[in-house]
Amino acid sequence: MTAETSKKTCCAPAREGGAEIDKQASTLERENAPAKRVSIPGGKGLVGTNQPELPIDGENPLRSARIKPFEMDETVVTNARFAEFVAATGYVTDAEKFGDSFVFVHLIPGDPKDFPAVPGATWWHMVPGANWRAPHGPGSEDMCLPDHPVVQVTWRDAVAFAEWAGGRLPTEAEWEHAARGGLGDVRFPWGDKEPNDRDFFPCNIWQGRFPEKNLGLDGYLATAPAKSFEPNGYGLYNMVGNVWQYTGQAFKVKSLKKHVQREHADKKGYKLGKGGSFLCHASYCYRYRIAARTGTSPDSSTSHQSFRLVYDI
């Protein structure tokens, strides 16, 4: 799979298919990492916003949804927990089958020019050997830190993990209800105060000029530990920033406007992601807001996509 055959998008470059390659799974022993769940109350949940920043993504309008009580992992799935899954099942991720994956340019070991860039989004390169064990490509195995989010996993990988773990991916309504932490119609899990590049760093996002220079003022140039920064009112960590989180539903935008239809014409079958990532900044990709959303093909994996589970009660 080459970058030239991938689809262009700023948040999540996507494959255009490709044959799966059989590969024998290896077992990776890691520390036991039981997941802590928190209870999310049911009731009237809110979805979307009446003050959209990116209406082309389908952020608006603000609407309500009836939510049943459920449980949710307090963090996204970590490398340690994903390793337990692989050790128990012999699962092989899509990136391992394909033999390559998308890596953000400044994280690539060695010279990024050695790897093809995605046209129109040249901060993404297709790197052979990049997968969850070596998230930035060969030579980055030491970045597969046990307490950090697992990345370089596809939506299909997330669904397979959820089936093994006895949970599922959340709906958009469940995810937003949980992210709001009981605060109602707010922009972020902590309220409405905007992160900045000076003195307020409530989550792991980009500081500086994207994509040239990340100042790392929040303490991280790539992923932060899954359990970092302050949790929201329900006890959930990093509901925005750090890594995108897959949901269990399709990415759809309802609009009669032709320019919106053209924008999303090639995204049939894409899956909905929420939360933004360490690559987001208000000046470029203002998607670390609760109402923000993106779509990703179910066989694509990157340096900044992960997931957390919910559980029916």
Rank of each mutant, 00 (worst) to 15 (best):
I67W: 07
N79T: 09
N60T: 11
E4I: 02
N50W: 05
P41W: 08
R81V: 02
I56R: 08
K8Y: 15
A33W: 12
A33L: 06
R37D: 10
I21R: 15
M72G: 05
T75Q: 04
D73C: 13
G48F: 10
P61S: 10
T5F: 07
A14D: 15
P13V: 12
R81C: 01
D57C: 08
P55F: 00
P13H: 15
E71W: 03
V76H: 14
G17A: 08
G45Y: 01
Q24M: 08
E31H: 15
I56Q: 07
K36E: 14
T27Y: 00
A3M: 04
K36C: 12
M72S: 04
C10G: 07
E29V: 09
A3W: 01
T9G: 12
N79R: 10
E71I: 02
G18A: 04
P41A: 05
I21H: 14
N32E: 12
P52Y: 07
S26I: 08
L46D: 12
P69F: 02
R66Y: 10
A25L: 09
F70V: 00
A65M: 08
C10T: 12
P13I: 09
L46A: 11
C10W: 11
E29H: 05
N50T: 12
E4N: 00
E71G: 15
E59I: 12
N60I: 01
K44Y: 02
C11G: 04
Q51S: 09
T75D: 00
M72H: 03
E74F: 03
V47P: 03
E71C: 09
G48W: 09
S39R: 15
T49H: 01
I67N: 05
K23L: 13
G58Y: 00
R66W: 11
A25Q: 07
P34L: 02
T2I: 06
V47M: 01
F70C: 08
D73M: 11
N60L: 02
E74I: 03
N60K: 06
R30C: 12
A12C: 03
A83V: 14
L28C: 13
C11Q: 08
L28D: 10
N79K: 07
F82R: 11
N50S: 13
L28Y: 06
T75V: 06
E16M: 14
P13G: 14
A80Q: 15
R81I: 06
K23G: 03
N32A: 14
C10A: 14
A80I: 15
N50E: 13
K23M: 10
P34D: 02
Q51Y: 05
A3I: 02
I21D: 08
G18R: 03
P55L: 00
T5W: 03
D57M: 12
T49Y: 00
A35N: 01
E59Q: 13
K8T: 13
E16Q: 15
L46S: 13
V47Q: 01
P41S: 10
M72A: 09
T78F: 05
E74G: 01
M72F: 07
A83M: 12
T2D: 05
A19P: 07
E71N: 11
G48L: 10
T5C: 05
